[in-house]
Every structure is written in C-alpha cells, then in structure tokens.
Computed example of a mutant assay.
Amino acid sequence: MTGERDLDALLRHMKPEMRPGIFVFCTIPPNEPIPASTSPLLTFREQEGTTLVILREEAEAAELRTAFASRLITLTVHSALNAVGFLAAITARLAEAGISVNALSAFHHDHLFVPADKADEAMAILQEMSGAKRL
C-alpha cells in the first residue's frame, strides 16, 4: 500500500486525532533495560541513552525523570515516507502560533507531540489547515 505524496491532498485529508493521555519523554542510560513496568509508545536509542516516550503515569510509577508533557496528535492520512513538505508545512504553521512540536513519521501516519497546554489550539490550527469544520 503506497502512501499519499501530494502535499495538497495530504493537507486536505490529514484528519488530525488526539490520543488520550499525557505523554512524556524520558531517557535511560544506553545499556540499561527498559523498565518492565512500562509500555513505551516509542523508543529510540542514541549514543547518550535510550529515549522513551510513555504515558506520564507509567513514568511516575517507574520513578523516571520526565520532560515535555505532551499530547499526541495523529494525522490519520496515510502519508508516504518520502512525501515532501507535509511536516514542514504543519510545523511552520504551528511555529507561527508559538506551538512547539516533536514530529514522528511512522509507516502509515505522521504523529505530533505538542505541549499539553497547547493541544487544543494545535488541533484547531490543524483542522483549519485541512479545511475541516470544528465539532
């Protein structure tokens, strides 16, 4: 299944959805195992350590230090991994509104971690960009 590459179509059909919960970013030393009590949504190994993106409650229960309390917005359009300009257009528009974003492209969709206190504003901007009417 090939993802969408046309920028106009991607923006028009992005259909943002906000997932429940507050996600946080944590790091553990490079050779330390991921705490068994956690179920990370995302792991990424860097030279300095392993990044975990997990629900805040899991991080607190595992006594992990946290950063960037965020909400996760999934852009439900199936975007091609080699689509050009989609995230650039979105992150530029969010930046104009003073909203930081940590973006992730997975196989089927693009995902945005935005500050928890700016999530509703980010959703409104994304819906406006897609031409969707607010509910």
Rank of each mutant, 00 (worst) to 15 (best):
G21W: 04
L75R: 05
A9H: 12
D8M: 08
I34V: 15
A89K: 13
L72P: 01
S79F: 02
E63N: 15
A119C: 12
G3V: 05
S105E: 03
R56G: 05
T51D: 06
E58H: 15
E96G: 02
A69H: 14
A119Y: 12
P33M: 02
A67W: 08
M14C: 06
D117S: 06
K133Y: 00
G85K: 12
S70R: 02
P33L: 02
E32M: 08
E46G: 11
L126A: 03
F44S: 11
A59I: 14
M129C: 07
D117E: 15
P40K: 12
E57A: 13
L11Y: 04
L87F: 10
A69S: 13
E57S: 13
T51H: 04
M1Y: 10
I54L: 04
D8R: 14
A122Y: 10
F68K: 07
G3M: 04
R71F: 03
L10T: 06
T74A: 14
A83M: 09
R65N: 10
A103I: 06
L104R: 05
L126F: 08
F107W: 14
L135H: 11
T66Q: 09
E60W: 02
T27R: 15
A83F: 11
R65W: 10
D6E: 15
A106I: 04
I125L: 13
M123H: 02
D6C: 12
I125H: 04
A67D: 15
F86R: 03
A61P: 00
M129Q: 10
L81R: 05
H111F: 09
C26E: 05
L10I: 06
L42W: 09
A80K: 01
P35Y: 07
A122T: 07
N82R: 11
G21K: 11
E63F: 11
R134N: 13
S105C: 12
H111T: 13
T50Q: 10
I125D: 05
A36F: 03
I22K: 13
C26V: 00
C26Y: 03
E48D: 14
L55W: 09
A119Q: 12
P33K: 12
L42V: 15
A89E: 11
